[in-house]
Nucleic acid binder design. Structure first.
Lengths: 332, 332
DNA sequence: CGCCAGCCTGTAATCGATTACAGTCTGATG
DNA sequence: CATCAGACTGTAATCGATTACAGGCTGGCG
């Protein structure tokens, strides 16, 4: 590997001068600069990232902590983050996180060994203390979720408002017994969606029926099982609101398998608007989240934080209820 | 940040000794070791990854190059890679790749600046020369795709055999005019699936009808458009074979929107067996790929390559045609 | 007692960059 | 001609680890 010393030697200058032309810092005579550049080109020299990192104490790597890359919505966000980061000279280190203690430890390791410049969380499932501790050590952004009493820059839709939109829509169609399938309770957006669910009931003067509140692992299979069970237990409901499209896909199928037509017998609403939603059968009514925008904003905000600039937060991006074919007026 | 020097000073030893206890190298007296460990613990010392990287010339980072994280199948593979890598002390740097020249350059940059220890490609879309050049510089593994004349360790299913399974199945149901919707032609597995398609025709003594060969961007929307167009042009076919489930989802919907029932009027087969496949309506018949296994194997093979150990390749993992509800006997 | 092997430890070079500081050179000015 | 500012460049310290080499100490053996 050719180093800055090789370049210096071949160009007949010192390493300091080579570094100056590399970074456009200090002053260098035009012909010296040309000579150095020629040698750099000729030797195909590329400065060692490790050397730079050590000296400058930054790695140009930001870690993205996700609950499940497997979810297309998450994939979409990560995708846009990768592109946005790359265009600014940063790379994305991917880290799955499921709220386990081992991963907590590993995250702290990354920070302690200064392997990364910062963190972006797509999930606030972490125990608060753990989370704050990381955020204190490195620039940290929360994407897709917002926790009101945490003082951390975040970008997300307004989960409560979005849920209210859904609930009002369903209630407007005459639904009063709405089954909620949410992700695990540790998840913040799940919590917000639950909160929205309760608020909507309050506003409508309806009681919340606890048996209508179901939890499921974030897979279609889990939602399928949950819903199948509910139907078999004879649970009374005319609509299902799923905390993600991934869950909705399982729910759709469970209802159909139980001989319930969607939307004639039961209405279904999802969340996220993944790329499959419009193509499902029936096309899924769901809350659209601007995944790309969230990803890009998150990177922009992270850079802002990393540069120590002040910024306004939380940033709330627009959601939109996309009405398609999975909902209808409630049967009596 | 506390460094190895701080530890050495507090423990009253030299940095060499601290390093020795950290790495269990050389010899250290038991009581000295204990003293050093105590100080490490007390100061909460963690060795700097950058310092180590510079000295040892390795970053413990492997780059995973993917065509689209947004595809749940890819997500699944990446997911298992991340876990497998992490359990061995490595991290995953994610990089989207779409065969563009800029990305080629960026990849080479990563290698030249020694930011990564190696590469795993989930796509062989790269121009061969470019690819070989990277593989020559760093340990490189090909996952999910296999290119016969490239001398690079790879792990994947046998795409041709899998396609043959599908074709035989469809032909066994009486289908002779099978529409193929494949990903972009640059893609290797797309090429293999096309090859399988041709071989199946040969073996059955049927001519390949070029108008039945369609290409589409890897989104449900693109497949939807392609298939809608085909139906509108009055193209004659009784089955559709999609090169991925993502495409199949769009295809399913296009047929239904055109008033064609699946599988009564048209049969549909997908590829990958993403987690949604069994829950679609109708449940999708598709080729199962062991995503988790591919990811884990790829990491294992990469480590093997990185350690310079010999290994057998290509590794072929088992695929399986999962017959569900989207295919039926062909109408005359 | 002298010698030597073997254990333990420290000194200092090294990886590849950046940068503070100092030194040299040039040309303008009084 | 002496002086000096300013442009250009080089020396060497530094970031935080690993490790080759050398030196000190201890104990066993002849």
């Amino acid at each position: 590997m050719t180093t800055i010393h090789d370049v210096a030697r071949h160009a007949g200058v010192s390493v300091a001068t080579v570094s100056r032309v590399l970074n456009n810092s200090g002053t260098v005579r035009t012909d010296t600069r040309a000579r150095v550049l020629a040698v750099i080109d000729q030797l195909d020299y590329h400065p060692s990232a490790m050397g730079q990192s050590l000296r400058l104490n930054r790695t140009r790597i930001v870690m993205v902590v996700v609950p499940e890359v497997t979810n297309p919505f998450v994939g979409e966000v990560v995708y846009s983050m990768e592109l946005a980061a790359r265009s600014r000279g940063y790379s994305i280190l991917l880290h799955e996180y499921h709220g386990d203690q081992l991963t907590d430890l590993q995250l702290q390791q990354y920070v302690s060994t200064r392997r990364i410049d910062g963190l972006i969380f797509l999930t606030a499932e972490a125990r608060e203390k753990q989370f704050q501790q990381l955020a204190q050590q490195l620039p940290t952004i929360l994407a897709c979720e917002y926790v009101d009493h945490w003082d951390i820059p975040s970008v997300s839709i307004d989960n409560i408002a979005a849920t209210l939109d859904v609930m009002r829509y369903l209630m407007g169609l005459g639904h009063t017994r709405i089954l909620l399938i949410s992700g695990s309770a540790g998840n913040v957006s799940a919590r917000d969606r639950l909160r929205g669910y309760r608020i909507a009931h309050e506003q409508a003067g309806l009681p919340v029926c606890e048996e209508l509140l179901q939890e499921a692992e974030p897979t279609p299979a889990a939602a399928y099982a949950t819903l199948t069970g509910a139907v078999e237990r004879g649970l009374d409901f005319t609509a299902v609101f799923c905390a993600s499209d991934v869950l909705a896909i399982g729910a759709l199928r469970a209802l159909q398998d139980k001989g319930l037509a969607v939307p004639r017998d039961v209405s279904v609403v999802g969340f996220d608007d993944i790329m499959f939603a419009p193509f499902l059968n029936p096309a899924l009514t769901t809350v659209h989240q601007p995944a790309r925008e969230i990803g890009e904003r998150a990177i922009a905000m992270w850079l802002c934080a990393a540069e120590g600039k002040a910024q306004d937060y939380p940033v709330t991006v627009r959601h939109e209820l996309r009405i398609r074919d999975s909902c209808a007026v409630a049967r009596r």
